[in-house]
Design a protein around this nucleic acid. Structure first.
Length: 106
DNA sequence: CTGTTGACTTAAG
DNA sequence: ACTTAAGCCAACA
């Protein structure tokens, strides 16, 4: 039957994309945007996560900038929380940065 | 609908 | 390494 394409909201795709990040791996906002179907909307991705009421549901700690940098100033829970979570998953975090060459989702 | 903001990205100085 | 500028997109007032 003619299935109606229920297009999820932008933030919903972000949630899916971020959730699909393998454990012990990180992804950049650009990758999330591309995974959400909007390559280039890296800005909107960050905004969506920030404004989206999905704390605890989205592993934002796996989302890093293109330079492998985290967001300690806006991180949930606490500043060191992000780094702690990443390290707990096997990601080596150094100075709020991760080695994209090894941990970025490819 | 318009304008501003922002957890981005890349380039240039 | 840091700052500024421009580009792109979505949510909010």
């Amino acid at each position: 039957m003619t299935e109606k394409k229920r297009e999820k909201s932008f933030s919903d795709r972000i949630y899916e994309a971020v959730s699909r990040i393998p454990r012990g791996t990180v992804a950049t906002y650009g990758q999330i945007a591309a995974a959400a179907g909007n390559g280039g909307a890296a800005r909107a991705v960050g905004n969506a996560l920030h404004r989206n009421p999905l704390p605890g549901v989205i592993p934002c700690h796996r989302v890093v900038s293109a330079q492998g940098r985290l967001a300690p100033h806006f991180a949930f829970g606490g500043e060191g929380q992000q780094q702690k979570l990443l390290e707990a998953e096997g990601v080596e975090v150094i100075d709020c940065r991760v080695d994209l060459k090894k941990y970025q989702m490819r």
